[in-house]
């Protein structure tokens, strides 16, 4: 025989005001714990290795098969890795910041916690960025080590600038990819179109409009390395603008993402129904 239905005798709010209000630091700690435990778990090691190793292996291949060692290596390190590989990696990793959780149906566990939607998104981005910076640092050091080991001149002197600019590039392209991910579920297509139109197309136009291209600013800052300035036709002319534009762009992308995430719904049901 089934038990009788429960008759409730409590008041509508037995402990009014008892809800906890997490601080920003508490929320950040919780989200970081989730990121760290899931991203660095044993099962993620192949993915991490897949993100770190290929760039160095290809650099080694370039050094072994190329004719001009310094040009080939730095071309690979800057144009192929930093200005193309890093943005594409960011697109894959940050574009799915919310979408991946949505797809795996785990977003609702976080979205029903006591934090504003904007706070969730920004702190989630910070945690993801911290993880990506660790992976990027490992990949960068390995790449530099490959060049250094093969005796490419100027690698040691370039290391500091390269790693700093990589950190900046990860933050800027990460923020942009995060925005693309929130705008549309086909963020890879969106990001590719952006890359072709803005970074490749508009970025090459020799007027001020090319300040829209983030890779142009990175090139200006890369030109601070004498070896690179000697090899490539890059100048530090617009470096001051680059120092202003890159962080400002990242902040604008994040602000737009936070606003979008606050106004728009992101649920598996909504995705399926639409």
């Amino acid at each position: 025989m089934s038990a009788p239905a429960v008759t409730h005798r409590g008041s509508p709010s037995p402990t009014p005001g008892a809800a906890f209000r997490p601080t920003v630091l508490a929320t950040l700690s919780g989200l970081w714990l989730l990121t760290w435990k899931s991203r660095f778990s044993f099962r993620q090691w192949p993915a991490i290795a897949g993100a770190i190793l290929p760039a160095s292996l290809l650099a080694l291949l370039v050094l072994r098969t190329g004719t001009n060692e310094a040009y080939d290596y730095f071309y690979w390190l800057t144009t192929a890795y930093l200005l193309l590989g890093v943005p594409l990696y960011c697109l894959a990793v940050f574009g799915g910041l919310v979408r991946d959780e949505l797809q795996s149906n785990t977003l609702s566990f976080l979205m029903t916690r006591p934090m504003s939607r904007a706070r969730f998104l920004l702190l989630r981005f910070v945690c993801q960025l911290a993880w990506v910076q660790v992976v990027g640092l490992a990949a960068g050091l390995l790449l530099l080590g490959t060049g250094f080991g093969c005796g490419v001149p100027g690698v040691a002197r370039f290391a500091g600038l390269f790693l700093s600019l990589q950190a900046v590039a990860l933050a800027v392209f990460g923020a942009l990819a995060n925005l693309f991910g929130l705008v549309h579920r086909r963020y890879l297509v969106l990001g590719t179109i952006y890359g072709l139109v803005v970074e490749v197309g508009i970025g090459q136009i020799p007027t001020n409009i090319n300040t829209l291209a983030m890779t142009r600013h990175l090139r200006s800052l890369l030109a601070y390395d004498h070896e690179l300035a000697r090899i490539f036709p890059w100048t530090t002319e617009a470096a001051g603008t680059a120092l202003l534009v890159l962080p400002a762009a990242a902040l604008v992308f994040l602000a737009l993402s936070a606003a979008l995430f606050t106004l728009r719904e992101y649920t598996a049901t909504g995705e399926t129904m639409q």
Binding site: A19, R21, P22, G30, L31, S38, T106, F109, L110, P114
Partner: peptide, 28 residues
């Protein structure tokens, strides 16, 4: 409010204690 969704998905790479600790921190 406490919410338990319908779908089965939970973070596969976490242990229950770690997951609850993280959610506890986020809950304040």
């Amino acid at each position: 409010i406490g919410f338990c969704p319908e779908h089965e998905a939970i973070p596969a790479d976490l242990r229950p204690g770690d997951w609850l600790r993280a959610l506890g921190l986020i809950s304040g």
